[in-house]
Design a binder for these strands. Structure first.
Length: 420
DNA sequence: TCTGGGGTCCTAGGACCC
DNA sequence: TCTGGGGTCCTAGGACCC
């Protein structure tokens, strides 16, 4: 018997905050996105107050005032580290694990003939993860990943946090009561299209003609359909896939209109992205830069992007920074209130497979590489941006808001939890 | 005043090649 | 009536995911 188990951490960011602040237990808790913009994670108690994911923070001021809601800025350093801990525990308990996102992982369970044993294993996993991280998880068990997703949704509605979907009658009933928009791979747009053909539930979907599904959704839809019928169509990818792009973009705390300040923003984001590139042992050749005004405001709108390739693959920050200045000049327009900018690195390969250009040194061998290494070492040890490029700006009046951040309890010595 | 950020995959169409 | 056929590569855009 081959079983896919999907482990999903319950309201993960909230649970991370709760792990270090027990008074948040059973209280309405919400985590805000970057710039304290909108809600990205909610505790069930907050959901019960009628608040939904994606709501802008300022729209719930009223509720926050009246109901005592605890709001936090997102603390990705903490969540990332907690995620690593959870994944390590999972990996120690099964042979094959595919880390799917910061709070989800597929486990592949093979060679177990008895359903009961699988269920007990899931129970043990859940217990152990909670014991070592105090993160509550839900586990769905099924024949394919897509079915496991549905099982996990059920597991979240109690059932001890574990739902096993291996009985065909239960499967059929569950598909009948599952709307297609809740199926993995079917989003808002495909839901609308399929509704036109009278397809509303998972059951309608598996009964629909494969030709129709193929026509409307392409190969992806056809795969989803097969998976729901019990045929696995996606392998476990136990090795992390090669990075194809790295994006760094942010909204500003305050709008920016001068070229100089806008350049500070893209330079800062660019430095971060190229740093990430180096951390992964990669080099890139292509840079895309974009700027945009605030689409939610009634002011003059402008958005544009531009993209350019370097002559060689590199992870040398100044080279990208120079390019940023040139590219920004080309698309920058005066008299606009810019709200967001960003850069994307593409055409990425591993540093150790660079094909050196006949006329230049390869990045790994020259002094530029060493300078970057020293810089990264200093910043990794003493904190981000201890040393940085002048083009990133010194004052950064546009910096994003993060007014309610908790401490980075698990990754900074000076932010360890104190017990009074 | 205040509305996130980072990714992947697939497809259609155009340019170009022999 | 009918105007070759087969292929690759690249890009933009659309869809999805968390």
């Amino acid at each position: 018997m081959q079983i896919y188990a999907l482990v999903d951490c319950n309201h993960f960011y909230v649970s991370c905050e709760r792990a270090f602040a027990p008074y948040l237990q059973n209280q309405p808790v919400g985590i805000l996105s970057n710039n304290d913009g909108c809600l990205v994670a909610l505790s069930p108690e907050l959901k019960n107050l009628g608040v939904t994911r994606g709501t802008p923070g300022f729209k719930i001021n009223e509720i926050v005032k009246n109901q005592k809601v605890y709001l936090f800025s997102s603390n990705y350093e903490l969540y990332g580290d907690m995620s690593t801990r959870v994944m390590k525990i999972l990996a120690s308990m099964v042979n094959d694990i595919e880390i799917y996102s910061i709070d989800e992982a597929f486990l592949f369970i093979d060679n177990i003939s008895d359903k009961k044993i699988v269920y007990d294993l899931a129970l043990e996993i859940k217990k152990k993860v909670y014991q070592f991280t105090s993160i509550p998880i839900s586990i769905g068990l099924a024949k394919t990943k897509t079915l496991a997703k549905i099982a996990t949704n059920m597991a979240k509605k109690s059932f001890n946090g574990i739902f096993e979907l291996l009985d065909e009658n239960i499967e059929e009933n569950l598909l009948k009561s599952t709307s297609i928009e809740n199926i993995w791979g079917i989003g808002r747009n495909y839901t609308k299209r399929l509704n036109k053909y009278g397809i509303f539930t998972g059951y309608d979907f598996i009964k629909a003609s494969p030709y129709l599904i193929r026509k409307e959704m392409g190969i992806v839809g056809e795969r989803s359909q097969l998976e729901l019928k019990g045929t696995p169509c996606s392998d476990m990818t136990t090795l992390p896939p090669d990075t194809k792009s790295i994006i760094c973009s942010r909204s500003f705390g305050k709008p920016v209109s001068s070229y100089e300040k806008l350049l500070e923003t893209v330079s800062t984001y660019c430095s971060t992205a190229v740093h990430n590139l180096r951390e992964k042992g990669l080099v890139a050749k292509n840079l895309t830069l974009f700027i945009t005004t605030n689409p939610f405001k009634d002011t003059k709108q402008y958005a544009n992007y531009i993209n350019c390739s370097l002559p060689d693959y590199t992870a040398y920050t100044p080279e990208f920074l120079n390019l940023c200045a040139i590219l920004l000049k080309k698309i920058f327009k005066e008299n606009y209130q810019y709200k967001k900018s960003g850069i994307m690195l593409t055409d990425i390969i591993k540093q150790n497979v660079i094909q050196p250009n006949l006329f230049s040194l390869s990045y790994g061998d020259d002094k530029r590489h060493l300078v970057m290494r020293v810089m990264d070492k200093i910043n990794n040890k003493f904190g981000t941006e201890k040393i940085y490029f002048a083009s990133n700006g010194v004052k950064k009046s546009w910096k994003m808001k993060r007014e309610k951040t908790s401490k980075r309890f698990t990754t900074r010595w000076d932010e360890l939890m104190t017990v009074k």
